[in-house]
């Protein structure tokens, strides 16, 4: 069962219109991700942290996800400083030395990753999946993508249940996971069965849609209503993103 513990809440952030949160997240993430210097990612990281605080998310969950993201970043720190060509800043060890450029690059990536992480955590993870699918359509994401997302969310549970039932059936008949050809063959068969059943199901689902008058075009209940708070929120997010861009341009000029 996939829970969305972060999407439940009544904080200042949760109350914002999902469409506006989605656009704000996109703007801020772009401002952080496209930057070459550290100023814009730092600014966005600050905004993300503030939003995360405002969203009153459970600290334990935030920490767990923070660690997960930064575990990947840690691998970059193992490789990048040593492999980026530039001025060595440490003593050479068997011809390997950390370079200044490498450390700068790793720092920049760390800043960007965490800036985007906190924005996504506070702005996107706080939207329940069905509303996020609706918001995607409302802001002009092509129907195919939005429905791919909605259907995936809807049927992920069904497919994971199906896998669970098959795995239980295997266990009931004495299957014990092990490192053996037999175990690998069994797992391959389980996965294959899940795929075949998912394919069959997709055809039945399509039939059910056709039965209810589906003719290739999705129409949706428009359940969103924005107020002045949403508009103000988006303006602030836009301002932060533009400020990030401006800082970026200023730092380029500085270099030239």
């Amino acid at each position: 069962m996939i829970d969305e513990p972060l999407s439940q809440g009544a904080s200042l952030v949760h109350r914002r219109d999902p469409r506006f949160r989605l656009i704000a997240c996109l703007l801020l993430s772009l401002a952080a991700a496209l930057a070459v210097g550290p100023a814009a990612p730092l600014l966005v990281l600050g905004a993300g942290l503030v939003l995360t605080l405002l969203a009153r998310l459970p600290p334990g969950l935030v920490l767990r996800r923070f660690v997960a993201v930064n575990a990947f970043v840690a691998f970059l720190w193992l490789a990048l400083p040593l492999t980026t060509p530039g001025t060595p800043v440490t003593a050479s060890f068997h011809g390997l030395a950390a370079t200044r450029e490498g450390v700068v690059l790793a720092t920049l990536i760390t800043l960007k990753a965490n800036a985007v992480f906190f924005c996504v955590l506070s702005l996107l993870a706080t939207i329940p999946a069905p509303a996020l699918g609706g918001a995607m359509r409302a802001v002009g994401v092509p129907d195919k993508f939005a429905f791919l997302f909605l259907f995936t969310y809807r049927y992920l549970h069904v497919i994971s249940d199906e896998y669970g039932r098959l795995a239980t059936a295997a266990r009931l008949r004495g299957f014990v996971p092990a490192t053996s050809t037999h175990a690998y063959r069994t797992y391959a068969a389980l996965v294959a069965m899940v795929l075949v059943r998912a394919y069959d199901r997709s055809r039945r689902v399509y039939q059910a849609m056709v039965l209810r008058g589906f003719a290739g075009r999705f129409v949706s209940l428009d359940g969103f209503a924005a107020d002045r708070g949403d508009v103000a929120f988006l303006i602030v997010a836009l301002a932060v993103a533009v400020a990030g861009g401006a800082l970026e341009i200023v730092s380029w000029r500085g270099h030239v």
Partner: peptide
């Protein structure tokens, strides 16, 4: 199988699917 028939994540969206079509 009801799981084949219910295509939306929320009940209201699902029941409204036919009328919208």
């Amino acid at each position: 199988n009801a799981d084949d028939q219910i295509i939306y994540p929320t009940v209201l969206d699902d029941v409204a699917f036919g009328p919208l079509n």
